[in-house]
Computed example of a mutant assay.
Amino acid sequence: MTLSNELKQTVKKLRLSGILATLPERMAYAKQQHLTYAEFLELVMQDEVDRRLHNQVDNQMKKAGINPFETLERYDFDAPVQVDREMIKGLFGLNFIEEKDNVMLCGPVGVGKTYLANALAHAAVRRGKKVLMVRAEKLFKRLQQSRADYSYEKALLGFITPDMLIIDDFGLKALNEQQSTDFYEIVVERYGRASTVITSNRDTDEWLELFHDPILANSALDRLVHNAYRVVIEGESYRKIKSRKKLI
């Protein structure tokens, strides 16, 4: 069905232009199904609600730094890696966020730690949670830069307030004195208030030696690892496995 220019302009003025793409189809469906005016209006308005929710989730994904294609549904549970698959599936119930517990994803390069962390973030955003995913190096760089323009408190708050903060690739190199203090501040402020997910090529037992100050290290790690879900992934690189499958 053809839409009049007057109707198009009215819809745009009401900031409902998103319905224009499906309105002809909905009009044809309403005529075929003999819908009442109220039923037709409800159908069209629900389309707009669904569209806005979809856009809202997309925007949150981008703001949180999440890859929209790395989801639990796409994860290859048949990949030849050693991991507690039942624990993985259990984590996607997201109860750990409600309980303010943490998750440590440890294992060698390429086994899927970042993928799983991203998938958890994806699930949390769809559940309406505030999420931020950031590489450790970028986190420390952001806080360092914030000191130069006197926005440190605001930058620090940005890492403290999300329901779930994912710090990716933690422990690639030792932390200097300032980075150790920054990490400590984030962990202490989030402890018991929000969930932190960390991916690392090092096991949690090796994290102590990364810190400049052993006292700060013990204090931070005690809070971080206490009651945390520790997921160890071992085996062949998950990225290499996916690449080979694409070539077959």
Rank of each mutant, 00 (worst) to 15 (best):
156 L>P: 06
166 I>M: 10
186 I>M: 00
56 Q>R: 13
70 E>L: 14
117 A>C: 06
77 F>D: 07
88 I>D: 00
66 I>G: 01
122 H>K: 07
174 A>I: 08
125 V>E: 02
148 A>C: 03
154 K>M: 14
152 Y>H: 05
135 R>M: 07
111 V>C: 06
43 L>T: 03
91 L>I: 09
150 Y>H: 14
138 K>C: 02
157 L>P: 09
106 C>M: 15
78 D>S: 12
51 R>K: 05
123 A>E: 12
94 L>R: 10
110 G>H: 14
149 D>G: 08
56 Q>I: 02
112 G>Q: 04
94 L>N: 13
125 V>Y: 06
172 L>A: 15
56 Q>V: 04
185 E>Y: 09
151 S>H: 07
67 N>E: 07
111 V>P: 08
138 K>W: 01
119 A>M: 13
101 D>A: 12
137 E>R: 11
82 Q>R: 04
99 E>F: 15
68 P>Y: 08
62 K>P: 00
57 V>K: 05
170 F>Y: 08
160 I>A: 07
49 V>N: 07
141 K>D: 10
115 Y>G: 04
91 L>F: 03
98 E>P: 10
115 Y>W: 11
86 E>V: 00
56 Q>F: 07
68 P>C: 07
139 L>E: 01
182 D>W: 03
90 G>C: 02
174 A>K: 10
82 Q>L: 11
96 F>S: 11
145 Q>I: 11
44 V>W: 01
162 P>M: 13
63 K>V: 02
73 E>R: 09
55 N>Y: 04
44 V>H: 03
71 T>S: 06
63 K>A: 08
90 G>H: 02
79 A>Y: 12
94 L>F: 10
94 L>I: 06
160 I>N: 03
116 L>A: 02
126 R>K: 12
150 Y>L: 11
115 Y>C: 05
